[in-house]
Amino acid sequence: MSEDEFLKAAAQPVYNLALRLTGNPSDAEDLSQDALLRCLKALPGFRGDSAPTSWAYRVTMNTWKNRVRSEKRRGFWKTLPLAALFGASEDGEESPTAEPAAKDAPLDAGLATVEVGTAVQEALMTLDEESRAVVVLREISGMAYDEIARTLDLPEGTVKSRLFRARAALKGRLARFMEGA
């Protein structure tokens, strides 16, 4: 498999996975590029015994796990919430501009989608890394349980119980979007 073929198949899915894991585009780009570079280095040795995307997912997950570990070790600024600096200004100086936009009828549908997406991503970010990894691999990357188990080096039972825990947590956080369900 040539490098171009590999990148064509794997780059976008890897980026998408990274985005859902990290929750922000700049970390996602860093992570996905790190993972893809590792894949490209190892590509000559890749035997094709699994789908290239599955392999790339596995490398991405490992890269991410290492990052999380090292960030937890030194992670200081990463946890400074931007929300403390932005939004919720008590002056109300920004709200007048925000309000008319919210009332704008034609935008409502788009805003609603964006709002749901944001809420879901935020809910994902409240999960611990392990649960998030399982949910993202299952729902975003569409992997089967045994595939997830192989990717994360976990017993399948653990995958199932983590997935359940994560879904239960998400269910609580996203209840307001499930009324039509």
């Binding site: 990148l7 780059a11 976008q12 980026y15 998408n16 985005l19 859902r20 585009p25 996602a28 780009e29 996905s32 590029q33 893809l36 570079l37 749901v116 997406g117 879901v120 991503q121 994902l124 949910v135 993202v136 299952r138 729902e139 975003i140 879904r167 998400l170 269910k171 996203l174 979007f177 499930m178 369900a181």
Partner: peptide
């Protein structure tokens, strides 16, 4: 419904210039 909400997250396209930066 929870699964669907996560599944329905929009598929993120590669940012402009991603491949060049890579």
């Amino acid at each position: 419904a929870v699964s669907k909400l996560v599944k329905d997250l929009p598929r993120a396209e590669l940012p402009t210039g991603f491949m060049a930066r890579l």
